[in-house]
Simulated scan of single mutants.
Amino acid sequence: MQIINLKIQDNNEIIREIVFKDGVNIITNDGDDGNQIGKSTVLKIINFFFGGKFTDLWHDPLNKSTNETVKEYLTSGNVKLILKINVNNVEHTIVRTLYQKGKRFSSINSINGLSFDGEDKYKKKLIELFGYANKGLSFSQLKNRFFEVEKKSSCDVLGFLYSNKKDLLTQAYSYLYSSNSLPYIIELNEFKLNKKELRKELEFLLKGSDISDFKNRYDEIQEKIESYEYKINSFDISKHQLDIVDELKSLRIEIASNSENLVVLENRAIYNNKTIENYNNKIDNVDVDVIESIYKDIVDFFGKPKEL
Rank of each mutant, 00 (worst) to 15 (best):
Y99D: 05
E128H: 07
E226M: 11
K306L: 13
Q36A: 14
D210N: 12
K125Y: 02
I14A: 00
L98D: 06
F204W: 08
R145G: 06
I45M: 07
E223R: 10
G51T: 06
D120M: 10
K125F: 04
D246V: 13
N86C: 09
S110I: 02
S107T: 11
H240C: 05
Y271P: 00
F302H: 07
D167K: 14
Y177E: 14
N280M: 08
K123Q: 09
K53W: 06
K239L: 02
G31Q: 11
E223I: 04
I111E: 02
Y99M: 09
S227G: 09
Q222C: 04
L137Y: 01
I85A: 05
S154K: 06
G113Q: 04
P305L: 12
I4L: 09
K7V: 02
L242S: 07
G34A: 01
R252S: 15
K103S: 07
D243H: 11
S293E: 15
I4K: 12
E254C: 05
K143M: 07
N194P: 01
L169P: 04
V157K: 09
G208W: 05
I232C: 03
N278S: 12
E13M: 04
D120S: 13
R199P: 00
S174H: 10
N89E: 14
G159I: 06
T41W: 08
E68S: 05
K103T: 10
F54K: 13
N78Y: 04
K296A: 10
F54R: 09
E266P: 02
D219H: 07
E220H: 04
I244Q: 13
N25P: 04
K80I: 02
T41F: 15
F130V: 02
H240G: 11
E307G: 08
G131H: 01
S250R: 13
R145K: 10
D117S: 11
K121R: 12
T93P: 05
K123V: 10
D219R: 12
R145F: 01
